[in-house]
């Protein structure tokens, strides 16, 4: 399909919007809530791990690095299965009653995004020169101050890591379908339905145009989040 013919298909869809606004809004809200929460939690865990692996020598460091690198390419369906097992009645967290909830989707996206954010952040913080870290220490910085300087110096790389993690999370279908169930409420609004699972459903039912429209909304969302993160990265530079 050429760009012109694609636009020709999408334009009437935008004009005669084929969904209830409440439905689309709820899908976007669930998608953003799940992915942004998962990425925020992943970042909180990943940055200290990246700093630890980057600058400390300890037993098992090579093994941990291998686990992180393997995790970056881990199949999402397998992650979904493992998380589903863990939270199902037979699993260790069965009593928490998480199956087919947004919390379960956050857990599975956390597992998918954390290795990506850790791996890319690790490369970024490792590239910060030891001289700069020494300068921060020599000027009276504590270990926390040196870590803050390292994060500020590596902020562009860390922003890339967060974006890569967000991209992995929001574009994810397999695991959120397994642990979330792609559920909509009786009033038609989303409970655990995300943009990706909604697209999958529309395509499965042969409504390609509407699937494409949802896809366009997803792309715009990713672009907006990217722009915000890049802006924040540059802001850190201005005041760093």
């Amino acid at each position: 399909m050429s760009l012109a013919s694609g636009l020709a298909v999408l334009t009437p869809l935008v004009v005669e919007f084929p969904f209830e606004w409440n439905y689309v809004r709820s899908i976007v809200r669930v998608s953003l809530y799940v992915s942004l929460t998962a990425v925020a939690l992943s970042t909180l865990v990943s940055l200290p791990v990246a700093l630890l692996v980057g600058f400390k020598e300890f037993r098992g460091k090579t093994l941990l690095t291998s686990v992180i690198n393997t995790g970056m390419g881990f199949p999402s369906v397998v992650v979904g299965l493992v998380v589903l097992f863990a939270i199902s009645n037979q699993g260790p967290f069965g009593s928490w009653d998480l199956v087919f909830t947004t919390e379960a989707m956050i857990i599975s996206q956390f597992v998918l995004a954390a290795p990506v954010i850790t791996g890319v952040s690790l490369a970024a913080v490792s590239s910060v020169e030891q001289n700069v870290r020494d300068a921060a220490y020599a000027l009276g910085g504590t270990r926390v101050d040196v870590a803050i300087v390292t994060i500020k110096e590596a902020r562009y790389g860390i922003a890339t890591a967060v974006l890569a993690g967000f991209g992995r999370a929001i574009s994810e279908v397999g695991s959120v379908l397994i642990v979330g169930g792609n559920i909509a409420a009786s009033d038609g609004t989303s409970v655990t339905r995300t943009l990706t699972t909604a697209i999958q459903l529309e395509a499965e039912q042969g409504r390609f145009e509407t699937a494409m429209l949802l896809g366009a909304i997803l792309v715009v969302l990713v672009l907006v989040v990217n722009a915000i993160v890049v802006r924040l990265g540059n802001g850190g530079g201005r005041y760093g």
């Binding site: 020169e129 001289n131 020494d134 300068a135 020599a138 000027l139 009276g140 500020k152 530079g237």
Partner: peptide
């Protein structure tokens, strides 16, 4: 840390922060 904060050090390379 109190002692360290009464000492200043300059290295052969400036090693300025990106700011």
């Amino acid at each position: 840390l109190e002692f360290r904060r009464r000492i200043g050090m300059v290295f052969q390379e400036a090693s300025l922060f990106d700011a």
